[in-house]
Amino acid sequence: MGERGFHLEKEIIPVKFALVEKVLDLARANSLWPVTFGLACCAIEMMAAAMSRFDLDRFGAGVFRASPRQGDLMIVTGTVTKKMAPVLTTLYEQMPSPKWVIAMGNCAISGGPFVFEGQYNLVEGVDLLVPVDVYVPGCPPRPEALLEGFLKLEEKITGTRRFPRVESAW
């Protein structure tokens, strides 16, 4: 991860129940409930991803929980300001493990278009506050991009990908 972000020590589990863990991981990957946490423009695209045309619920990820206690996944959709930073950290801490974070949009990744000399209110990337699992670039990313982010996260959890990868034409 380089200089930015977190170095998570590899977890040492004394006894590993291989099969149980695998089944649990599979269940987790197929039931990623996001916390309703819209920050800015990207939140609208996150909603669009959950709506009729794109339908996140197909992957079991459409249950948006308003309480962080019941969510598995925090999608940081938009600019994180210095005033918002402590709130965001609290929300993350309120979520029960195992939990994941998707940084959606350029603002959440690095501050995006709002970084300029003399800026006084921006956290330049949400990974300075909480560990991020998947980055979805775009300003804002299309709903398809968020879906791909979900697939990436599932792949990260289970080690296998849901759909065959489509090779980019470019």
Binding site: L24, A27, S52, D57, G60, D72
Partner: peptide, 22 residues
């Protein structure tokens, strides 16, 4: 005007089991 759970098991029938296990 959407489909609902579909990918997890046939017609998404395994979906609640995944939720419960999670």
């Amino acid at each position: 005007r959407r489909i609902g759970p579909k990918e997890v098991g046939p017609f998404g029938l395994i979906q609640p089991i995944a939720d419960a296990l999670k």
